[in-house]
Every structure is written in structure tokens, then in C-alpha cells.
Design a protein around this nucleic acid. Structure first.
Ligand SMILES: [Mn+2]
Ligand SMILES: [Mn+2]
Ligand SMILES: [Mn+2]
Ligand SMILES: [Mn+2]
Lengths: 222, 222
DNA sequence: ATAATAATTTAGGCTAGCCTAAAAAATGGG
DNA sequence: CCCATTTTTTAGGCTAGCCTAAATTATTAT
């Protein structure tokens, strides 16, 4: 059963939305937004994916991936993240440059290729944005890190990942001197605009806007 | 100006046929054969490519690449061959396995990616099948090697490349113990079926059918 | 419960890229 | 030069994947 690049992108989008929303599936409008297609086009495709038994779809209800559909989606996520590691580790791209290229590479079809790439990279567990890489069985254990702005207390945290992959956002973080694994000490919380005064590692203090603190994932430092 | 994967494959096919036939362009039927599309479909596409100024096309005449079209074709060839090197050198694929995957990878669009890949691989000059890799300026100097069966004499040759990339052919060569750079000593020529008795490096003698000797490129050993 | 609004589906239409079959043009042997 | 064959083009049709606009269904606020 052959699957097109377009269909792969729909599966990936459904998977991603379903993750974010905690397993309630994906609505037509959410998919339309995510894929920048019109809602009518989404409905078309959902019918076709349903024919192919890749999703469960009933009119006017959120769509869910079938077991087969989910397996395929995870395989694509695996490829995407492995390629991102390759681009960063081997080709020395910046973490803000890898996503768009990986969007293309994730569609290359070859089981062997993915597995050899995985070996070549030394079975990495996380991609350059801190996202976990599914293993070859399709096993994926989600990050337990949470957005910084959910912790309402001063304290010391570790920067584990981001919830946004746009180049501009990642470049902003780099400009702040922030990289995965860094220690973030929250020194002050401004109630007015929810901005934070923080210290990254041993550097001078700086400020995180709410937009920053809501898009970076952290764990409490033990 | 955006160009589709399908259009890229047409450009590459025209380029390849034009090379083989020594600059006389490509006919509709040749393209139809090469791409395993019907002739009518080829005519359709030639009109579209002509609209985009990527080829020069006049009804009932062989098509030629425009300067822009050739530049794009060479860029694709460059990517194809660099990826083949990557697959072989870094991921340890066999030379019979790399072509099909490279057919997909050659369409990944990113100038940066190609150049970094080139650096990562150490600016290789030839791909795993002995084909020369165009440089970043689009410069390509063709092999001066010739098919073995064109040399009608006993003698000692060096195996420089192949004229066919099918897995079965390459596996056959591997089974004969033949790899790029090997020395081939022609010990006997059988007039009857044009088969050759040859010695590869220091190994025991074996036979090349005409089908083999016409598809391997050699130079006279100096 | 009803009315307004929002979400979704349907209907009709478009393009890229393919196909088949028929028509037209080129080619080659006598 | 002419007829048969080959090559190429044209005409008409199909599917995947998109769009817009209208119709339908679901949701929300009164
Ligand atoms: Mn990404
Ligand atoms: Mn990532
Ligand atoms: Mn190849
Ligand atoms: Mn090759």
C-alpha cells in the first residue's frame, strides 16, 4: 500500500494535534490551520484516508489515527528527528536551520536508510529541539518537561526543549544565549506582564517574555 | 521559479540522453522509454518545460536543454552522486543499493545542504559507480574511459566505471569480484560470442560475457 | 427553546501529470 | 517519388489535491 507525501503530512498533522490536545483527536479546522489548507480540502482528504483505513473518521467528529496510521505517523516523526540530528551533528547546521530541510527528508522511503542513519548517529534519544526520537519499534516516551510559565515559583530549572520550531523563535533563544541542557534560575516574576528575570548558567541576568517562557520546556533541577 | 519533482526528472532524463548520444538532444520516444511514460505524456511535459524556458522544443524535433535547464539538471546529478557517496561511505550501503535511494534524495531542495554534504564527504570527485561529480559551479568533466568491448586487443586495463546502475548488474560484478579501480587483464578474446577470459587483479581467471564487457568502462593501464 | 454564530461538509471547478486512441508528420526502401 | 512503417502530436478523459461558495450541522448565548 503506497502512501503519498501529502497523505504522510496529514497523518503527521493528526498525530501532532492529537498529542498536543491530549488524545482527543484532531478537528477539521485544526488540520486546516496546521496544514494551511482550506477546511473543505481537509474533509476531502479525511475521506480518502478513511478509505485506506489510516484514520477513523465520522462526519462532524474529530478524526483519530488508526493503529496503522499511527505507526506510519511515528515512523515519519522518527525520520524527521533523526535527520535533524544528522544535519546538526554531522553537517553543522544550526538548530534553527534543520527543521525545514527535515520536512523534506522525512519523506524519503527506505527502512534500511532510517536504521542505518540511526546507527550512524549512535542511536540518539533526542533531536536538536529536545524532542524524543521514537525507536525502531515505534516506541516513543514523551517528555515530562513542562512549559516554564506553568511553574509559578522562583527556582532553578533545566532547559529540556521547545514547543515551537520556527527559525525566528530559535534564533531569539540563541541570542539570549540559551541552549538545550542549560540551567535557568528564575530570580524574579513580574505579575504585571508575566515576564521573568532569569540567570542562564553563570551568565548575567536577562528577561524572558511570557511568549518565551510559555514556549520553552523545563524540568525542576534536582 | 519553482520546479516540481516530475519536471526535475524530465530535465535529468534529457540531460542523460543528450550525453549518451553525443549532444543531439533527446527524442520523444527516448524520453518515453527512459521515464516509462507514454509518448503523449512526454509531449505534454515538453510543452510545459518549453513555456518555462527550461528546454528548446520544436514539434517533431529532438528537445534540447536551455542553459538554465542544463544548470538545473547538473545540480540534480551533483546531488544524486553526492548522496550515493554518502550512502556508501558513511552508511555502508553496497554500490548496488544506493541508486534507488539517491533517486529520492536528489530532489531535496537546499543549496546549503548540498554544499555542506560535499564538505562532509571531503569533496569527492567520483561516485560509487565511477561517475564524475559536478562541482558547485556546475563544472563536470566526463570520464574518458571507454567500454571494455571497444578495445579489441588483449592487454591490461583499469576498471573505471559502469554504464548501467541496475542492482542485478552491479551484484553480478561484485560476484565476479570486481570493484572500481581493479586491474583487468584480458587474456583471451573469443570471436564467436565476444566473451573474454580475464584476470581480475591477482585472482584466478574468469569470463566476461559481451553484456558485461560492453557495460564496464576501462582505461588502458599505463 | 430559539436564534445567532461557528464548524464542517458538499458542490462545482481548477491544474499537474498521467493514459488511450486517433490523426498527422516524418522516414526509409524500392 | 511513393507507400508502408515509425514517430510524434492531438484530443478526450481520469485522479489527486487543491480552491471558493453555498448548504448543512453543531454549539453557544440569550
Ligand atoms: Mn522539526
Ligand atoms: Mn525537532
Ligand atoms: Mn545512480
Ligand atoms: Mn552513480
Amino acid at each position: 500500500m503506497e502512501i503519498s507525501l501529502t497523505e504522510e503530512n496529514y497523518l503527521k498533522a493528526i498525530f501532532s494535534i492529537n498529542m498536543q490536545t491530549g488524545g482527543v483527536g484532531a478537528s477539521t479546522n485544526q488540520l486546516s490551520e496546521h496544514l494551511t489548507n482550506k477546511a473543505g480540502s481537509v474533509t476531502d482528504m479525511l475521506k480518502r484516508l478513511s478509505e485506506k483505513k489510516l484514520v477513523q473518521y465520522k462526519k462532524y467528529q474529530n478524526v483519530h489515527l488508526s493503529a496503522k496510521g499511527e505507526k506510519m505517523a511515528i515512523e515519519i516523526v522518527r525520520k524527521h528527528r533523526l535527520w535533524e540530528v544528522f544535519l546538526m551533528e554531522k553537517l553543522k547546521f544550526g538548530w534553527d536551520e534543520v527543521h525545514d530541510i527535515a520536512e523534506q527528508l522525512e519523506h524519503i522511503k527506505s527502512k534500511e536508510l532510517v536504521n542505518r542513519l540511526d546507527v550512524f548517529l549512535g542511536h540518539p534519544k533526542f533531536d536538536p529541539h529536545g524532542d524524543p526520537i521514537p525507536d525502531s519499534k515505534g516506541q516513543l516516551n514523551p517528555l515530562k518537561a513542562k512549559p516554564l510559565h506553568q511553574f509559578k515559583n522562583k527556582g532553578v530549572y533545566i532547559f529540556m526543549g521547545v514547543t515551537q520550531h520556527s527559525a525566528s523563535f530559535l534564533q531569539h533563544l540563541s541570542a539570549l544565549g540559551l541552549a538545550i541542557g542549560d540551567t535557568i534560575k528564575v530570580e524574579e516574576i513580574n505579575e504585571f506582564d508575566n515576564s521573568l528575570k532569569v540567570k542562564i548558567n553563570k551568565n548575567a541576568s536577562c528577561f524572558f517574555s511570557e511568549k518565551v517562557s510559555s514556549n520553552i520546556l523545563v524540568e525542576l533541577k534536582k
